[in-house]
Write a protein that binds this DNA or RNA. Structure first.
Lengths: 198, 198
DNA sequence: TTCATTTCCAACGGTACGGTTGGAATATTA
DNA sequence: TAATATTCCAACCGTACCGTTGGAAATGAA
């Protein structure tokens, strides 16, 4: 059996994602990650340095995946709706991401890659602002607020799934309700962004 | 100096709120709560039983305060906007609440007082549904989704304050930006709820 | 095949934490 | 005032956890 160093590293990273999402940094033990990966915990220290470094790597990796999976191409109402829908889809397919970001936000300290993420979001804001100048999107709302609100509409479902269940009565595996929520998110995004009728 | 049992209990509860909001259940030590309260930790066990019971009490107390502070009286668009605005205000004035609810949601186990909270939210859904039947609110959206979305628009700012800062560039103590956000939230709520123009 | 390197194994060491304890001090009650 | 109850104090106990360690086993290279 040849040494599969990269395989072992990947197993540890994957296990860490599951454990960190479930329990956060403080609640996750190095032993649990190693056990889930079927690896001795000493390997974790050898490959990643320490628990904190592994946390940061997992977070950075998940953020990269999100950024490359959800894009905003145009500035039409359909584009806005689809951005919200795609964000919803990604969060629904990756519930561990929302949990990770929540744990992150609740911890002390600056966000991971704050500069890169800020730039990424500001680009979206500029994109929206251009759509407003073109009269495609409503000019009456701050574009930054609009970006923020679209993410809220899309991500909140996975951020507080227990609240969603209390309000709608639907459990986490109800695919029809998930589809209905997506349609709602897309429609809500369009309403928010469309030029004012007042 | 007479024994101030109730005062000591209150100091412990208040200290627990601060510590639990900051660090969550797992990250909070009983010693830190007692130290913040200026009380020996043995008193905490005497008054509240254990750490878990104190957590549950703090959570229940904060939920009661929220429920009695934010109400939805009518079903007009102004009422909807004001509900969203009042929710925003409460969260802005009590950042520890959002943090507590997040920590709660991330923990294993059912939400505190799930039955009571479910009833409370379902009443709001019914309220919205009545507004839809009266033609005051848009009939094209699921009222449960609408309730959920309004809470999202109002509460997301305090749920992910670091994201808000990355997107808007405004720090946590910018009162003018806070007022702008509230106006946005009220306007967004009205747009979502108003009868369809399509 | 031998030597060097990496991985595996499981125990270790030091620190932290929840909950408990016994005795002293203080407040309350009769 | 004496007896009783409560609070204060700080140490204790058992468990958990991060990061490290030394030696054995396995792999890779010459």
């Amino acid at each position: 059996m040849a040494w599969d160093t990269e395989g072992t590293r990947r197993r540890l990273r994957d296990a860490a994602l599951v454990e960190f999402a479930a329990r956060g940094f403080d609640g996750t033990t190095v032993g649990a990650v190693a056990s889930r990966a079927g690896v001795n915990k000493e390997r974790l220290y050898s490959y990643f340095g320490d628990k904190k470094a592994l946390w940061e790597l997992v977070l950075a990796t998940e953020l990269e995946r999100l950024a490359s999976a959800v894009s905003l191409s145009g500035v039409g109402l359909d584009d806005i709706g689809e951005f919200a829908g795609a964000t919803f889809d990604y969060h629904a397919a990756h519930p561990e991401l929302g949990r990770l970001l929540q744990w992150e936000g609740l911890q002390d300290g600056p966000p991971a890659d704050a500069i890169g993420r800020t730039r990424h979001y500001r680009e979206k804001v500029a994109h929206f602002a251009a759509g407003q100048r073109d009269g495609v999107l409503d000019r009456g709302l701050d574009p930054a607020h609009l970006v923020f609100a679209l993410i809220a509409l899309a991500a909140w479902w996975q951020t507080v799934p227990q609240l969603a269940e209390m309000i709608t009565g639907a459990g986490p595996n109800d695919q029809q309700e998930c589809a209905r929520r997506r349609r709602f998110v897309v429609e809500a995004a369009r309403r928010l962004a469309s030029p004012s009728r007042i």
